[in-house]
């Protein structure tokens, strides 16, 4: 449980937003670079949230729209983190912009929790449990699949080159 049990590279990170066990991420708010990181997160968050809002405007009135948003966002974070964290590819602002910003802003836990609570209050316990468990299963399955497919593609590309 201590910091010592961690590898020091980003491949050991648990938290994709920021993991202070990773020295490079610990240092990314030092000095003036802090504002570049925060601006990248903010801009990404705006794009992600607008995409989520657009999906709800396009397909209103059902909790399954947010289900779809969350599942897609989880698949994409799996792809992104393999490339950025495990492979160390891309610009230093890619994780803040795409991971923390776009995908963090796109997916939402609070709307999920409120929708489950509202279904429970309306006495629709079965739908509430189905939605709660369905999102969880869909999200975890999607992130697993995103990671697995990307790792396999990276390994194949590495073997071919």
């Amino acid at each position: 449980m201590s910091r010592l049990s961690h590898p020091t590279g980003s491949e050991g990170a648990i938290d994709p937003d920021v993991d202070l066990h990773v020295p490079a991420q610990r240092a990314e708010t030092a000095g003036r670079g802090k504002w570049r990181v925060l601006a990248a997160i903010s801009a990404g968050g705006v794009l992600g949230a607008l995409a989520r809002y657009g999906a709800v405007v396009l397909w209103p009135g059902s909790v399954w729209t947010v289900f779809g948003v969350n599942v897609v966002g989880c698949a994409l974070i799996g792809v992104l983190m393999v490339l950025v964290s495990e492979q160390g590819r891309g610009h230093a602002l890619l994780r803040p912009f795409l991971g923390v910003g776009v995908l963090g802003g796109f997916t939402t836990f609070s709307t999920y929790a409120v929708d489950v609570a509202r279904l429970l209050e309306r006495g629709e316990a079965l739908t509430a449990m189905g939605y709660a468990a369905g999102t969880l299963a869909g999200a975890l399955g999607a992130v697993w699949a995103g990671v697995a497919v990307t790792r396999a593609a990276v390994a194949r590309a590495g073997a071919a080159s």
């Binding site: 050991g12 991971g99 836990f109 609070s110």
Partner: peptide
């Protein structure tokens, strides 16, 4: 405050990736 602030403050992608990483480790 709801769709914008709370929606971007909370995250499902980070939560599910962390859960996967904890299990993998």
């Amino acid at each position: 405050l709801g769709t914008g602030l709370c929606g971007a403050l909370s995250t499902y992608s980070t939560f599910s990736y962390e859960t996967l990483r904890l299990a993998e480790r």
